[in-house]
Design a protein around this nucleic acid. Sequence first.
DNA 1: TGGGCGATTTGATCTGGGTCAAAATCGGCC
DNA 2: GGCCGATTTTGACCCAGATCAAATCGCCCA
Lengths: 252, 252
Amino acid sequence: MNNDLNPSLVTGGSCEPAVCATCAVRNSSLCAALSSDELDELNKLSRRKSLRPGQIYVFEGDQALDFANVVKGVAKLTRGSEDGRMQIVGLLFPSDFIGVSMGLGHGGDRKPEEPYTIEAVSDLELCIFPRDGFERLMRRFPALEHKLLDRTLSELQVAREWMVLLGRKTAQERVATFILHVADKMRHQGCHSGISFDLPLGRGDIADHIGLTIETVSRQITQLKRKGIIDMQGARHVVSCDFEALREQSGY
Amino acid sequence: MNNDLNPSLVTGGSCEPAVCATCAVRNSSLCAALSSDELDELNKLSRRKSLRPGQIYVFEGDQALDFANVVKGVAKLTRGSEDGRMQIVGLLFPSDFIGVSMGLGHGGDRKPEEPYTIEAVSDLELCIFPRDGFERLMRRFPALEHKLLDRTLSELQVAREWMVLLGRKTAQERVATFILHVADKMRHQGCHSGISFDLPLGRGDIADHIGLTIETVSRQITQLKRKGIIDMQGARHVVSCDFEALREQSGY
DNA sequence: TGGGCGATTTGATCTGGGTCAAAATCGGCC
DNA sequence: GGCCGATTTTGACCCAGATCAAATCGCCCA
C-alpha cells in the first residue's frame, strides 16, 4: 500500500530494484510472490514494452512468445475466423499474466503456437520475461508457480462464468453482466472510489466479448438508460449505476 | 503401460499400494506426478466412491467438498438458474481432477462455496482425498502442484475454445465441434481403436453443453446423417464418421 | 466555429434457432 | 414378444437478435 519508497534507497546491494519498487503491480502481479532479492533476479531478465491502442502484441498462430505482466492499460485476448467472426475470450488488466495459454515447459521441442491474438485496447505497458529464464526461476521459487496456479484457477472460473453468459443469457442479461464485471474490475483496480467509471471497450469489442452485434449492444444500453439503471456521459463514461438493479437484470 | 504388476508384490513395505497399481488412471491423473512411496502416502488419505447415472456429487452453493480424481465414467459440471436454464461448463472424464473450482488454500477461514454442480452422467467412480491432507501433500511434493497447474491450464484452454463455440458458432458448427471433441476424448481414453464410439451425453445434455435446445441438436444430427458425414445406430452410438468433413463443418 | 470521419444510435426487415405439439423410436422389464 | 415411460425426431409457427440502411453524435483539428 505504501508507494512512497525512495528509489535511491533501494538500488544498491540486494535490495528491491527501483523499477519494481515503483511498479504499479509489484504487489498484485505474480511478482507479489517474490522477496526483494528474488525480485532482483527476475528483474534482470525483464524488459518493458509499450503498445498503443490497436497495436498487436501476438497473432494467433505465431510461435509462443515470451511471458509478460500487464503493468498498465487493458488488452484483449481474441480468436477470429476468416469470415470475420470474432470472439474475445478474455480481457487483460494490470497485474494479469500473459503467455501461458498454450501451457508450460516446451523447452526441448519446437515451440507451440499461440492460440489467441493479444491486442492493446488502451495504452498498454508490459513487463516482459524470456520464457526459459522465467521457467527456470519458477522452478527455483515455488511460490511463483503457486501464484500462477491461483491466477489460472481464477481465470478458469471467469471463463466458465462467461460460458454461462454466452450459452444461456439474454442480450439484456449479457450487457448488464458485462457492466457489472467492468465496474468490479475498476473497483479492484482502485481506479475509482465512487460509482463512475469508463468502459474500457467500444461497442464493437463489447459485442465480440458477449457474443452479440454492435447494434444489439447499443440498443440494450439504451434500454438500461431508459430504465434509469445506468446514466452515461458520452458512449464510454458511466456516471452512475444502480448495482442492485443491474444485478437483477444480469441473470445472477 | 504394463498393468500386470502383481498386487501381492506391492502391498508390503514402501511399495506402490495395490489399489493404485491396478488403478486405471495411475499414470494419467495427478498421481502420475508421484513415486510409489509418495503415492503410498496419498493413498492412505483416499477413499473410493461410486455414483450411478443422475446422482449428484456436489450441489452448487454447497460448502467446498473434498478433492477427487475421476477413476471411471463421465460427470458433468453445471450451472443452473431458477427458471430452468442450464449450462454445462465442463465434462469430467477419467483422470480429471475435481474440487479446485473455487481455488486453493482456504485453510483458516470459512470454506467457500462450490460454484458448480457435479453430477454423474454414467456409472462414476471417484477416488476422494480430504482437502487439507491433499494440500499438505501438494506443499511437500511440488511435482503434484506442477501437474495440477498443467491440467488447469489445459482446462482453461478448453473453456476458451468453448467460449468461441458459444459466442460465435452456428448450430451446425456447434454439433460438429461437439462430436469431434467426444471422438477425440474417446481416442485419448483408448476406449476404441476404431472410428466407432458412444456419445456420453443424451440430446438434452448435449444441448446444455453447446447452448442450444434439444430439438435443434436433434435436427443438426439428422442433417449430418443426411449429408453422410456421420452414421449412427440408435441415438447414442456413432458407427462411423468422416473426420475431415466434420472438421470442415466445425468452423475450425 | 465549422467541417470531416469514425463510432454510435435508431429504424425497418429478415431469419436461425426457439417454442409448442405430436409422432416415432428406444429400452427395459415382465 | 409385447407393453410403457422416456427419449428422440419431425413439423408448424414465432420471436430475439441479426442484418441492412440511414441518421446522429462526438471528437479532433484547422
